[in-house]
Design a protein around this nucleic acid. Structure first.
Lengths: 154, 154
DNA sequence: AAACTTAGTGTTTTTTTCACACTTACGATT
DNA sequence: AATCGTAAGTGTGAAAAAAACACTAAGTTT
């Protein structure tokens, strides 16, 4: 599935920036966690929080949805076949279904430039872009973890 | 699937803290994005970046994996049946398979307290906990978006 | 005129998840 | 003493989701 690719070799300064950003987000994540914990009582407990987390991921937690989101966050906007090419491995049927669901859930907007030939652009809504931004540090962390992004020692 | 629940009503100060944290993460997300963009050339392009993102999500992008991660991040550690109860709706077969995959991928560790009766604890590895922290702001954002977390006007 | 591109849909096959029964070994209950 | 409950799963068949692949229709390019 995934091609062998050159890793991205970034300057020590930029690598440091990435690490600092990621650490910053980790700290924010911990702080958010501890705020929630303070509100635990008879109603609000682990059960409540897990439920809320499952609900939070209800749209994202199926194959390709999160990748579509991340891709549109990277690329800004994209047409159907471009997305299909970028997301090597997705079938047009699945892409079509997922885009419909993302649109229904307010993450993506579908912009028809009526031709003919009809052209359709997909773009993140503000909500989708927020989600994309919030995902970005995790993606960066994983890129580094997978050796796709490395510090050059120049 | 999801029960009707009370929203979590947080103080204006804590709500402000949450908003500030989430915004902070958004800014970090944007900054990370722009760092990567600076390295675009013949090798490293949108195609490369989408590939790397797809790879980053290769473990997370299937039903339940991300929820298991978030749940273990919330609860710290958990036994099999406790996880199954918390993740209302998951089958034991699927939970078992997903935990195996998460363990194989270094996100989760499986700790056997040998009985009998044999007891097993699941806990995030450092890597898994990092991922959990990085996901936390997104979950908080979604909780607010879904009306599960609200500012009280006390 | 033939081939290609656009954004998909239809249909069949494969993979993933669900539902539900079942296991083995112990402790507690009746 | 026999049954029940709990522990952490596995086995199996059915249902749902995704993949593979063909196909559409209107317009552009060769």
């Amino acid at each position: 599935m995934s091609f062998v690719r050159q890793p991205m070799s970034v300057s020590p300064e930029d690598f440091k920036k990435l690490e600092l950003s990621i650490n910053d987000v980790k700290e924010n994540g911990s702080e958010i966690r501890s705020i929630f914990e303070n509100y635990y009582d008879e109603e609000i407990d682990i059960d409540w929080e897990v439920d809320a987390a499952v609900e939070a991921f209800s749209i994202l937690s199926s194959r390709w949805t999160i990748e579509i989101l991340a891709t549109l966050y990277i690329i800004g906007e994209s047409r159907f076949n471009q997305l299909r090419t970028l997301l090597r491995g997705i079938s047009s049927r699945t892409l079509s279904d997922k885009l419909t669901k993302c649109t229904e859930n307010g993450l993506v907007e579908r912009l028809v430039e009526d031709g003919p030939p009809i052209r359709v652009k997909y773009r993140l809504t503000d909500h989708g872009r927020n989600a994309g931004k919030l995902l970005s540090p995790l993606v960066a962390y994983m890129k580094i973890k997978h050796g796709r992004v490395m510090r050059n020692n120049a």
